[in-house]
Amino acid sequence: MELTEKKALQAFAIRIRMALVEAIHSIGSGHVGGALSIADVLAVLYGREMNVRPEDPQWPDRDYLVVSKGHAGPAVYGTLALKGYFPYEELKTLNQGGTRLPSHCDRNKTPGIDVTTGSLGQGTSQAAGLALGNRLKGRKNRVFLIVGDGELDEGQCWEAFAFAAAHKLSNLAVLIDWNKKQLDGRVDEVLPLGNIAAKMEAFGFDAVQVDGGDVEAIAAALERTRQGGDKPYAIVLDAVKGHGIAEAENTEMNHSMPINDERYARWMGELQADLAALEG
């Protein structure tokens, strides 16, 4: 990858973080940790890998994104706003009565949201159905599915993975946000998952594991999923919950965090500095 592209993707990821901080600050608190941890993969998806038309969100041949960990909505909304799906200022309506940006992703409310999620596990089956439907309709597009690691506690995920493998849905790429934490604590303490990549392999996936904070590694892994074949793809993103903002990373219970004015100013300052360092 060219250095300029890498820097552009890194800058996009920082801007996604700024956008989600903007959104969550407007309402005072929200799902900070798991939104920050997927900023890098969102940057690579929308900055490089996905074939979409922000001016025509319902274009049937687009690549689809299903964010099954629907509580990461603010990260997705930030990405979509930056891509021009709706005005950036609208991020400040997060969770307000009548908003188009609810806490959890809703395809009937937000331009660019493809599937309604929030009840964990349910995005997995919908993504599999969507991938199957697209293939049956002869479309050449792909479906990307972001799943949380804690979310893998839900048995429905494994039903959906077995289904995806049985139907050889190579137009489906499952991106697992392995950020090691869930709401009540460490994944290893609440319900240990073992080796996720090995499990996905055993379920019939082509599985790899990459650094979830490294846009170049994510890009390479996503590029692999273009090749078709007879297996669905899994990419385990070795990630950090709260990634990209030191205080969020260092807060043990960071699933949901308040963002008051003082914290907002500080975090935005840090992200601005990161951006300046990157873009010179």
Binding site: V115, T124, S125, G133, N134
Partner: peptide, 26 residues
């Protein structure tokens, strides 16, 4: 098999797959 999808003994997944197929236009 492309018109009649046997989902196996997994009703929750079947319901979700049906929803995904509806998103795809079915």
């Amino acid at each position: 098999p492309d018109r009649a999808i046997d989902c196996g003994i997994a009703e929750s997944n079947m319901a979700g797959v049906a929803a995904g197929l509806a998103v795809a236009g079915y």
